[in-house]
Nucleic acid binder design. Structure first.
Length: 128
RNA sequence: CAAGUAAAUCGCCUUAUCGCUCAAAUUUUAAUUUGGGAGGAAAGUCCGAACACCGUAGUGCAAUAUAGUGGUUAACGGCCACCAGUCGUGAGGCUAGGACAAGUGCAACAGAAAGUAUGUACAGGUAAUGCUGUAGUGAAACCAGGUAAACUCUAUAUGGUGCAAUGCUAUGUAAACCAGCGCCCAUUUGGUAAAGGCUGCACGCUUGAUGCUGGAGGGUAAGCAGCUAAAGUGUAUUGGUAACAGUGCACUCAGAUAAAUGAUAAGGGCUUUUUGUUUUUUAUGGAUUUUUUUAUAAAAAAUAAGACGUACAGAAUUCGGCUUAUAGAUUUGCUUGACCA
RNA sequence: GGCUCCAUAGUUCAAGGGAUAGAACAAAAGUUUCCUAAACUUUAGAUCCAAGUUCGAAUCUUGGUGGAGUCA
């Protein structure tokens, strides 16, 4: 699994996103909240991910774009650590809950924690 | 040199690694190579257009916008020039800058009186009188005025909706169901009918029974086109006071859609500031007969090191403007003041 | 992305261009009560921001800020 984040790996379908928000589960590590739902994909991608920043906390499009870019970058660089040996495919949506503009090292460390927590909860549900 | 004013321009850069997106080519169906990839405001959506669809026999009335004169333009409420007013010592800035000699309205408080006009004090004058002037109130007052970013009048202009327009493909489906008004049948009546259309309204015209209105509900929210070569950009030159227009040459310069244009590391610019060193100038004091030497303080310049900062802001159909936000830097014209020659 | 609308006390609403900007509920203090509630008395509190027109602006005009709705 290469460290890429191309068009195919983005979560784009409005239908899927609606389903994700309605039926998905979530784990959160401040300032992130990860929603996930296991769904099959037709084009053979193991994970589709989207990011979102609230307009309530960041009025300017520049700030929102900056945070989304940081989040995508952190996801791209770290996803190989956690997803190389998963069997089912997932749809993800990562929400930014904070109110301040973050720096990249902060985003990266918290993102790692978030996905560590996610893989723990996945294995727990499997065992049960 | 300082302060100001007007106009114009720029608005971080380089390298490495890892990525994103579009186009073309090559293999071939997911990779490789090459090339391109945010702004002066991309913002606000305030004007004006292009483009697309809907509508369009006609007449009248509304409604909205603009407002000195001339020019410019595809068009404009923009821009340019001039006139007038106003602010500023000045360079210059600002102006919704037609009409109250058609009609209607409005003017709190104060004041005799704000319109059906009226009469206080003082002075002047007369045969006599608010007949005349001044004071007092007020934003406005002795005879008529003020107010149109009050209605209005005058002149000019204007169909509506916006790329989530619109067309095609895919999926689903429903000329279904409920309520009301009609049609139909009987009586009367035989049309001058319910209702709709002419996208503000009326007249008028017209459609009109598998009809019209409302309710409740079903499906898709995927893909393609629209979509990026144009009132285009740069430059030279000609005409014009200028806005702008003509001609020649060169160039092709974003097209995403939970929405690309980024992340990390290193180095360098720029601004402000702190500290150290050196040099120059000025002031004060000490030593000295003088030359000279030295201490302290201030200012300027150069250099080294460190710290902080490096704005506003992200294309969404496309253009022309306007408005608003913006760290800082540069250039040019002009004005005022100070000093020197 | 386009279009449309709104903004007045803590809340819900008023107010013909004339100023002490009003009412109800809520809040605070007091009276009453053994205490609370109710009742009564009193108090404080606002025109989203900035310019312009006007003698005078919550009201008219322009620009900004914030909020809401709607369209495939």
């Amino acid at each position: 699994m290469p460290a890429t984040y191309s068009k195919k790996e983005k979560l784009k379908s409005k239908k899927l996103i609606d389903a994700l928000f309605e039926n998905g589960q979530s784990v959160s590590v401040f300032p992130f909240r990860l929603m996930y739902l296991s769904t099959p994909f037709e084009d053979g991608v193991m994970a589709k991910t989207g990011v979102s920043v609230s307009k309530r906390h960041f009025k300017n499009a520049v700030d929102r774009n900056r945070i989304k870019r940081l989040m995508r970058e952190a996801y791209r660089l770290n996803k190989t650590l956690y997803f190389n040996n998963i069997s089912t495919s997932y749809a993800f949506m990562i929400l930014y809950m904070g109110k301040d503009k973050p720096t990249f090292p902060y985003v990266e460390t918290r993102m790692k924690l978030l996905f560590g927590k996610f893989s723990n909860s996945i294995s727990e549900t499997k065992n049960n």
